[in-house]
């Protein structure tokens, strides 16, 4: 089994996509952080301003900026599965390991590890940007006050689980483009709307995105009112539930299908 997981990681790291995804993710997180830095303390048209850069509130908010990168973990998950169908390498994979359930488990474990690495990457990048910014602005670095342990764990966990969702989605659609578009539309459009608009939050908080946010305990008024999310443990349970569902979907759709 360890060999199979290793093979899945090799498949990803012997092609170029992973570092392109990592780069794009860091750019996106960088843009988010840039906006937080630029608009800190600026009040526009009477709307409540973002906190000042030297405050604990600003640091907490900036620290959660990496959460947006989870879609890239999901895309990598989609690609880990759909690339096999796109290039028909699935044939060689199943010839080597005809017990397909084992391949699926190896992919899911591989996906979790890749998501974890990407989450770590986002956190390291945040640390490099946020800590100096606060210190330069005259604030103090305080991991506990900034909720770094919880936010960090939350980001890593959501990245890992989103990679797993991607693998599940990939087994369902098998078409790479459809899978990637699906992942982006889902996490950037559908979930955003359902999680951000208070009236829709009773639905949104049960979605992976909403559950992920409750893990991060982002308590920021975006102008639409404070989000009503599940408690952190509830969010974790919901995410784990989705992971199980996606894993079951992945194996159920793959184990008996004819590879022609």
């Amino acid at each position: 089994m360890i060999g199979l997981v290793k093979a899945e990681l090799q498949k990803l790291f012997t092609t170029r996509l992973w570092w392109i995804m990592l780069l794009v993710m860091l750019v996106l997180v960088g843009v988010n952080l840039g906006l937080f830095i630029g608009f800190a303390g600026v009040s526009q048209n009477g709307a409540p301003a973002l906190p000042e850069r030297d405050t604990v509130e600003w640091a907490r908010m900036a620290w959660s900026a990496g959460a947006d990168g989870n879609v890239f973990a999901m895309i990598l998950g989609v690609v880990m599965m759909t690339a096999e169908y796109r290039y028909q390498t699935i044939t060689g994979t199943f010839l080597t390991t005809p017990r397909r359930g084992r391949v699926i488990v190896a992919k899911l474990v591989g996906g979790l590890l890749v998501g974890l690495l990407f989450g770590l990457g986002a956190l390291v990048f945040e640390a490099v940007v946020v800590i100096p910014t606060v210190l330069i602005s005259g604030g103090e670095f305080s991991p506990a006050a900034w909720h770094i342990p919880q936010t960090g764990l939350g980001i890593i966990a959501t990245f890992a689980l989103y990679a797993l969702f991607g693998i599940g989605l990939g087994t369902l659609v098998r078409n790479q483009v459809a899978g990637i578009v699906g992942a982006v539309v889902w996490s950037y459009v559908i979930e955003r709307i359902l999680v951000a608009i208070p009236a829709l939050q009773p639905v949104g908080r049960w979605l992976p995105g909403g559950a992920a946010q409750s893990l991060l305990s982002i308590d920021v008024d975006t102008g639409l009112g404070r989000p009503e999310l599940l408690p952190a443990w509830g969010g974790a349970l919901v995410l784990a539930g989705y992971a199980v569902i996606f894993a079951l979907v992945a194996s159920a759709t793959t184990v008996r299908r004819d590879i022609t």
Binding site: K6, A7, Q10, T14, R16, A83, Y87, T89, G92, T96
Partner: peptide, 18 residues
């Protein structure tokens, strides 16, 4: 049935690992 972006050696090594 090969990933076009992967080298021949890596393709075979992955199969060996698996």
């Amino acid at each position: 049935s090969f990933h076009p972006g992967r080298t021949a050696r890596n393709h075979l090594r992955i199969l060996c690992t698996a």
